[in-house]
Computed example of a mutant assay.
Amino acid sequence: MIPFLSLKQITDKYSSEIHEAVARVIDSGWYLQGIENEKFETDYSKWIGCKHTVGCANGLDALIWIFRAYKELGYMKDGDEVIVPANTYIATIIAITENNLVPVLVEPSIDTYQIDENLIEERITKRTKAICIVHLYGQCAYTEKIGELCKKYNLKLVEDNAQAHGCKFNGVMTGNLGDAAGHSFYPGKNLGALGDAGAVTTNDTALATCIRSLANYGSAKKYVFEYVGRNSRLDELQAAILDVKLHHLDEDVQLRKDVARYYVENIKNPKIVLPKIFDWDQHVFHLFPIRCEKRDRLQAYLTENGIGTNIHYPIPPHKQECYKEWNHVSLPVTELIHATELSIPMSPVMTEEEIRRIVEVINNF
C-alpha cells in the first residue's frame, strides 16, 4: 500500500535530531515559555523575514487571536465583515465567526483554486475591515491586485498560511505578505509538529504584544490581566521539534516540488484535471489536488490498486450543518471543486518507485 502520507517516515527522517531535542527539553526541567520557544520563534521569524513570531497552541487559535487582537486594539468590532474564500477549510471561517465578525464568502478561480481577485471589490462594503486570503493546497493566494485593494479601502490583509510554509511571492515568503498571518504546525503540514501547534507572524509590534497576552490568559505580566484571554501556548517540546524540522524545510519543499513536477509531466489521462502551475516559486505542494468528474470512482479504483488518497474537502463550509444559515447559498465554483477534488500522495519521503506507480495507475483509469 502506498500511503497518502506517512508521518512515521517523515519523523524517522530526522529521528536522531528530534530525540536529541526532546531529551534536551526533558533534561532542562522547563516545559513552557522557555528557551526552546524563544529559539524557534526567533528562527522562524528570520526564515519568514518578519519581525515577530508568536507561538500558540494550534493554527485555528493563531487565526482567532489575530482577529481578536484587532478587536482589542480598536480596529474591528462585532458585526464587521471579513472577505474570505468560500472554498477554504472550515477553520478559517470559524476564526472569523468566533470573534462575532461576519465572513463574506467569495468564489475561487477554477484555475488556481485561490480566491478570485476579480470578485473581491464588488463585495467590499463600509463594514469590511479585512481580506483573509488562504494559501490553499500550498499555492500562493496573494496577488498585486489584492494588495492594491487593501490599500485603496484601508483593509487589513490576513493570511491563512496553514498549508504554505516556504511559499513565496516575488521572493517574499507567505506569512510576510500581509499584516498578520496564522500558521498551523499540525503534524501533516509541510512544517509539522508531533502534536498540535501554531503561530502568528507579523511586523506589527502592538499586534504581536496583544496576541502574546491573549494566548497567555490575557496576561503580559504574571498575575496581571489586561484582557480576558485563554491558555493557548506553544509548549517547549513542540517548539524544539519544530526548530529541528525548520532547518530541513527548504530541502523538503524542493523534494515536494520534484514529486509535483513528475506528476505534471507524466499524468496524461484526459479524465484528470491537473493543478495549473503558473510559478513554481508560488507553490510548495502541501497537497497535490487533481480533479475528476468521476471522483468517487477514481478514489475507489486507486484504493483497490493500493494507493491512498484524501478529499480536501468533501463538503464546503457553506453547506455544513454548523453554518446552516448559508445552506441555501449557491456557490457553483466552490461546489464544483469540492465535488471533484481528490488529493493524491505528496510528501518529501516518497520513493521514485511509488511515484511512477501512482502515475501508471492514474493513467490507466
Rank of each mutant, 00 (worst) to 15 (best):
A240W: 03
H328W: 10
E251V: 12
E321H: 11
K271Y: 07
D252Q: 08
P289C: 07
T309R: 09
S232Y: 08
N305P: 06
H318N: 09
E325Q: 09
T309F: 08
P270N: 01
N363I: 10
K245L: 04
E265R: 01
K276F: 09
W280I: 15
L336I: 07
T340I: 14
K268C: 05
I337F: 11
E325H: 11
P316T: 13
T309C: 12
Y263K: 00
L242C: 02
I337M: 11
P332W: 14
N269C: 04
P348I: 04
D258C: 02
Q238L: 00
Q238H: 04
L242Q: 08
T309L: 06
I267Y: 09
I290Q: 12
Y313E: 12
P332M: 14
E353R: 15
A300D: 05
P317L: 15
Q299P: 02
N364D: 13
L287Y: 15
F288N: 06
V333D: 13
A260V: 03
V333T: 15
L242E: 05
W326G: 13
V273R: 12
L302M: 07
I315P: 09
N266T: 05
L336W: 13
A240P: 01
D243L: 02
P345N: 14
E293V: 11
I290C: 10
Y262V: 00
Y313R: 12
F365E: 03
A239Y: 00
D296V: 13
R233H: 00
V359M: 08
P270S: 01
Q320M: 15
D279E: 05
I311W: 03
R357T: 14
N363R: 04
D235A: 06
E341H: 07
T334V: 12
K319I: 13
E304H: 15
E265M: 02
